[in-house]
């Protein structure tokens, strides 16, 4: 890989191997994510999509191979350097992960208060601006328990953006949302990415939704990238597995049935 291409990629992964117990999750995974784009990482449940995000943030370390974010080898960073890198990232968790004892305003203010010494008045402006950008300035005084799932997701988004990161990671941002909230979140991901010049990585298996906004998709299965390209390219892929995934067919290379002994024998009790 030449130097100019490397500089265009915010994340580069090569030869990534990782296992949990005896289960191999990544087996020589390779991928590169260019700056300024929205990249979707898709794959059947349990393929380690969330695990991959945790490699980017340094919460998990690979068994072998390299995970580079902004030119830095994440697993080899010292604690202060890792925390400095994390300040350049934002992450939206699947369950929003809002701090339940703090109001919406304090949740968004939290990373700013902990990481900077911003004057209270400036802090208030920053937080209200971010809340306004997700349409929830009016909800600043509510508690997380008073929010709907879609609102909580948007608050978490404002919190992930509040330190103006370069990289935003979205872990299943659409799961459990009604169509209106889903549309709002989709629009915000695109809008944030373009308006703030971010690099966004969306982990999702909502194929139809993600195809609207992603510039590039990776499909991961059995520890490797099995397909990559623009969403429309993937829909016409030659791989049966990719097509099954993109069209949501119940049976195919990924079988409907979990491996089991013979059905007839098991019911007759002879197994």
């Amino acid at each position: 890989m030449d130097a100019s291409r490397a500089a265009d990629n915010l994340i580069e992964i090569s030869g990534l191997r990782f296992s949990r117990g005896s289960r191999l999750i990544f087996d020589g995974l390779e991928l590169a994510i260019p700056r300024g784009s929205i990249t979707a990482i898709m794959g059947p449940s349990g393929t380690g999509k969330t695990t991959l995000l945790r490699m980017f943030t340094g919460q998990l370390k690979p068994d072998a191979g390299s995970v580079q974010v902004a030119g830095q080898e994440v697993a080899r960073l010292s604690r202060p350097d890792l925390y400095a890198l994390r300040r350049r990232m934002g992450m939206l968790f699947q369950n929003s992960a809002l701090l339940t004892d703090f109001s919406v305003f304090e949740n968004v203010a939290f990373p700013v208060r902990e990481n900077t010494r911003l004057h209270e008045r400036l802090l208030r402006n920053v937080v209200l601006t971010k809340l306004h950008s997700v349409g929830l300035r009016g909800a600043a005084d509510l508690m997380p328990s008073e929010l709907s799932g879609g609102m909580a997701r948007r608050v978490a988004m404002a919190r992930a953006m509040v330190l103006d990161p370069e990289l935003l990671l979205y872990d299943e941002p659409f799961s459990g949302l009604d169509p209106i909230s889903l549309g709002v979140v989709l629009r915000l991901i695109r809008l944030n990415n373009d308006a703030l010049g971010l690099t966004s990585i969306v982990v999702s298996h909502d194929v139809a939704e993600i195809a609207h906004i992603a510039d590039h998709c990776f499909v991961i299965s059995e520890g490797k990238v099995i397909a990559s390209g623009r969403p429309d390219e993937l829909a016409n892929s030659e791989s049966e597995l990719v097509r099954q995934f993109m069209t949501g067919a119940a049976d195919g290379p990924v079988p409907f049935h979990y491996p089991a002994p013979d059905y007839r024998q098991q019911l007759l009790g002879t197994y």
Binding site: T57, Q59, Y83, A84, R86, R87, M89, G90, M91, F93, Q94, N95, A97, L98, L99, T100, F110, P111, E114, N115, R159, L163
Partner: peptide, 22 residues
């Protein structure tokens, strides 16, 4: 424990806030 179960501690780590310290 509930903070752990609801990813609040993980979220802090990603926000570059050490949950042990905070």
């Amino acid at each position: 424990g509930l903070m752990r179960a609801t990813d609040q501690l993980a979220a802090m780590e990603v926000m570059a806030i050490d949950p042990i310290r905070r």
